[in-house]
Design a protein around this nucleic acid. Sequence first.
DNA 1: ACCCTATTTCGAAAAATATGGAAATATGAT
DNA 2: ATCATATTTCCATATTTTTCGAAATAGGGT
Lengths: 106, 106
Amino acid sequence: MKLEKAASQLEALGNPTRLQLYRILVRAGEGGLPVGSIQGKLDIPSSTLSHHLKRLVDTGLVTQERQATTLICRANYPGMNALIGYLADECCADASCAPAVGKAMA
Amino acid sequence: MKLEKAASQLEALGNPTRLQLYRILVRAGEGGLPVGSIQGKLDIPSSTLSHHLKRLVDTGLVTQERQATTLICRANYPGMNALIGYLADECCADASCAPAVGKAMA
DNA sequence: ACCCTATTTCGAAAAATATGGAAATATGAT
DNA sequence: ATCATATTTCCATATTTTTCGAAATAGGGT
């Protein structure tokens, strides 16, 4: 993963509203959630939600699929795993990093 | 870890310059690196660097220790691990998340 | 064609961030 | 005390982000 991409994903998650939004999608599981449902949980205007959602989609952390008039949103687990992997790798690059998360000592 | 804190740390890392800066500190290992050294590697004005550094320190991702006139900066590994843990937990909360990073199936 | 719901785009304003030169502060050496 | 180096703080500016109402678009249903 390129540093630029990692940074953009981190930035996307680095906003309380978006992190909360992402959390909701993660907890929703594979089935995902329509935009309207998310709005009910977050209680923010639809235009604001749409912007945040777009940000997460643009950075590859969330995917969307149309089902008639509703748009289903899903957390992109592989995307998140790649990001976590990047952070873990950076963290343990050539430093001792004992309590690392599942990274074999290189 | 509170969502707010996670978000602020993610935001801190979500800037290319700061992510690069953090990476440099991680790779520097336990010994850390003086601000001046970092500046040489990043080639940005000292005031800009100082601002970015402060951001990382404020969010708890970097620690600093004075040694005479130079300030040694170190990546705060436990801090990063806590953040990675938070992300991994969120990611695997109640969803199937097969390729997770070292998280036992709950 | 018209209507209804879902969602996005437009447009605009407020707030936050990023950047860096210049001046200030910190610490030690002479 | 003076100087020299290291780093921060002050200040200002350009850019980006955040927010959201209003209008537009998308996708059916009748």
